[in-house]
Amino acid sequence: MLRLHPYRYHRPKELGEALELLREHRGDSMPIAGGTDLMPNMKHGLYTPSHLVALKGVEELHVIEERDGELVIGAAETLTRVASDPLIKRRLPGLARAAEGIAHPMIRNIGTIGGNVCLDTRCTYYNQTYFWREALGFCLKKDGDVCYVVKGGSRCVAAHSADTPPMLMTLGATVDLATADGARSVPLTKFFTADGIWNTVREPDELVIRVRVPIPSPRLRTSYQKVRERKSVDFPLLGIALAVEIDDSHLIESISLVVAGLGAKPRVVGGLDKIAGGQRLTPDIIEEVARRAHRQCNPLDNLIVDTDWRHAMVAVYVRRAFEEVLGQPLAAA
């Protein structure tokens, strides 16, 4: 049995009220949408806020619609809805598939897209009970000052473990954020930082309100591949999101590849336009992209599988992503 610490549970009906509550209790409050990430973390004593501000009842956070060339998805929409909504499936099938593969049905029924974007980082030495962590000695990310992954390390390297952000990054998504004092928009590629303790630019009293995704060209093909121990339940040990725009003669117009699940920040694989832009998508090009992704990634011993194996899987799953992409028919314009 894992007991929770005492807290007050606020259920605001309006966004302004939620933001006001987060400001009023800044430093001792957290927003909660589905809570499928936060609740287990609280049961492990990783977060102990006195106030939880519940977001599911806030009307403004529920929306899925096409608006000005973008698909707008409210932060409190469940992952089940994102995976099954006809509009998302038609316009952003890669996102629907990434959402469909998260955890298991009960988690997706309650967990939200906003929560997945803000998912806490994960590490062998962090996602453990208080008893476990105390027995070993606390780590850098919570309650301690040592890193057990990088000996002598002073920077937390816990892994970004969410499935929708890498796909959303390849699609050029933007997140809209708000505090009681104002709003701002941040491209998702600039949303994550390399600090495993808090790996986003979101302030503690700031909320992700919605995700906006530009409607892609019908020629865009996407794939999300992930490695995990079981085909259900588990978080990714590695996530590969690929978006390639190719014409019907397989000429590459644009290519975007994001590798997640290794460090605190999903990695946008660089230099791909130089080797692939304007080229025909051949096995040689795929091999070169896979090599480049492998070279740019450097997994650490932060999750419970062999690091070298996880590194080797980067190239394997990049190839699989291309295989999936090549098997997809071109959408009609």
Partner: peptide
């Protein structure tokens, strides 16, 4: 008791949900 095993599954408006991590 932390959302991995499904033993606490109940239906919420007909949809399965994990009652152990639901406030």
């Amino acid at each position: 008791d932390k959302g991995d095993c499904g033993a606490c599954t109940v239906l919420l408006d007909g949809q399965p949900a994990l009652s152990c991590i639901l406030p």
